[in-house]
Simulated scan of single mutants.
Amino acid sequence: MYIKKILIAASVVGLLVLGGVSIYIYNVIFSPNTAFESETQSLYISTGSTLQDVVNQIHPYIQDTDDFITVAKKKGYASNVKSGHFVIKKGMNNNEIINTLRSRNIPIKVSFNNQHRLENLAGRVAEQVEADSLELLSAMVSPSFLDSLEVSALESLKYYIPNTYEFYWDTSGKEFRDRMVRYYHEFWNESRRKKAEKANLSPFEVMSLAAIVQKETAKVEERPRVAGVYLNRLKRGIKLQADPTVIFAIQNQNQDFETPIKRVLYKDLELDSPYNTYKYKGVPPGLIAMPDLSSIKAVLNAESHDYLYFAADVENPGYHKFAKTLAQHNRNARAYQNWVNKQKIYR
């Protein structure tokens, strides 16, 4: 009888211990372990991070770090930390948090507008993804990459069409670059190619001309009319004579793209550069800037008219006066030159 009581007592103690352990394990794994008030919290885990790196980052957002580490090790996460952008939800337990960090890398939105050069683009994108500007730029100007596409660094600007895209935060420079090339080819679908052919332009020439339109006017509604002027000049074999191409030629020659040039001088028109459209006919051999969608669409859907010239409209800042004859244009141009002189803008 005595032994029986001992056995019963031992069994009860064992059950209590087992129950206590079970409750502890349950609490560690399945009890809510978040410590933020918002509905969600984003975590950005860098490539090559260790469990300790993750702990350092997640610490402000969970109640019990030790329990998190325990579950992470039990589930094998410590030896298989994933990089990327992860979103944990309010009230998640350790099991759910670890599962999220292991397999739910959520894409982010990456946006960029018309950038002047690849260096500017790399800097803008680096603000939004893990890769830094040096890694991005190195990938963009990689000789093997440019050779595979048979383009120069300047010509490669066409592949980066300003827009908003979905990327994984831990996208590498090469992955970003290659994805943009794929998007470029998707952008140039049959419909857009037919429009380019109708204008007697290649996709590259459309992009190059769109870059000039982009620089000529900031008014989106005016861009189809400006594009129409340039298409009319191309059809008639007239030089484009676009001031932004001269400005680019000067900056490219001096390798100084930071100093603004507000006025093109007559001596500048003699600069011997393939980008100087006062000296050479046709579309420049590269993009002077990165055109946005509105400028590309303006060239593909240019306004049909007989204008061959335009000059800044001093009475309507930001817009231009368009002319069909040189005499009319000269009057418009003189009005602009007089205004510039009054403003004492000499360069």
Rank of each mutant, 00 (worst) to 15 (best):
M1Y: 12
M1V: 14
I6K: 04
S11V: 14
G20F: 10
V21E: 03
I23W: 06
Y26V: 09
N27I: 01
S42L: 10
Y44C: 04
I45P: 01
G48P: 05
G48L: 00
T50W: 01
V54W: 00
K74V: 15
A78T: 07
K89I: 09
K90H: 02
G91P: 03
T100W: 04
I108T: 15
V110Y: 03
F112Q: 09
L121V: 03
G123D: 03
S138Q: 15
S138R: 15
M140H: 09
D147K: 15
L154Q: 15
Y165P: 05
E166Y: 15
F176A: 12
F187K: 12
N189A: 04
S191I: 03
R193L: 15
K195Y: 04
A196M: 02
K198N: 13
A199P: 11
P203K: 07
M207Q: 14
V213R: 13
E216A: 11
A218C: 10
R225D: 07
K239D: 04
K239R: 07
V246W: 02
A249Y: 00
Q255Y: 10
Y266N: 14
K267W: 01
E270M: 12
T277P: 10
P285V: 00
M290H: 01
L300V: 00
H305F: 14
F310P: 07
K321P: 05
F322W: 11
F322D: 05
N330V: 02
N338Y: 09
W339I: 04
W339Y: 15
N341R: 13
K344R: 12
Y346I: 14
